[in-house]
Design a protein around this nucleic acid. Sequence first.
DNA 1: GCCGTGTTGAGAATGGTTATCATTACTGAT
DNA 2: ATCAGTAATGATAACCATTCTCAACACGGC
Lengths: 134, 134
Amino acid sequence: MAVRRNTWQREAVREALERSEGFISAQALHTELHRTGSPIGLATVYRALADLSTEGEADSLQSPEGEAIYRSCATMDHHHHLICRQCGTTAEIEATEVEAWASRVAAEHGFTEARHVVDIFGLCADCTAAAARA
Amino acid sequence: MAVRRNTWQREAVREALERSEGFISAQALHTELHRTGSPIGLATVYRALADLSTEGEADSLQSPEGEAIYRSCATMDHHHHLICRQCGTTAEIEATEVEAWASRVAAEHGFTEARHVVDIFGLCADCTAAAARA
DNA sequence: GCCGTGTTGAGAATGGTTATCATTACTGAT
DNA sequence: ATCAGTAATGATAACCATTCTCAACACGGC
């Protein structure tokens, strides 16, 4: 009997995911939850995220580094991120040009309720300089 | 590190990659090489693929399952996905406009080696119709 | 052929994710 | 409210792709 039960853990994951802006990895979310006092288990975080993803409450995708990263699907924020994969700093970027493109492409394929994921991973100026020095 | 040496292993990886159509994982390529008689080591396959990738002879990206997959770079350019979050079907989409935008934005912020994540989640035509009926 | 050094490869290490399973606790029924 | 049935939890082990280690090897220039 697949009766889904409500537990504080599941709710904690959902809230933490909504509270975090942009994408976050399962590991990071687990760390964040522990930091705020929740003794939630890592396995539970993974399960909750997988459930949220199948139910459509969260989007999941693979970062270029091979981690699975999640984002709350409810927040239709239209700002995107430029993420340094070395030091982790992020810069918010405008993506107005892409908005139109995304909805047009979705419409061309008969898709509705399209939400897009547009993020760029790279090396920031500092880390580029550091890498050049080494 | 000054001189790159030519070894039959490196060449075998390049040829096997070109022979295989579309994307293939490092593990699959290693299995394929062994199947055809090459006693090449797994670590060497990974190294060769990483080298080909940095030299621009191969594209690499992450499969939804979290594996790194590679493709000979000669023919197609990389594409993005339009993903139905209901039934999971994906459609490949061209994103030429976005490619230029992504590299430009990255450059404006001093970022280098930019890789972008551009995917659109929505409801495909079938699932939209099914949802409308219900 | 010889030598120096880049390369190889078996296995160990790593790191993210999933499975195991005894225990906990939510839910619907009594 | 209590109970029983069972889904959910979580510590840990297992898993799997990938990377690292390092001794042995082989390519290229001599």
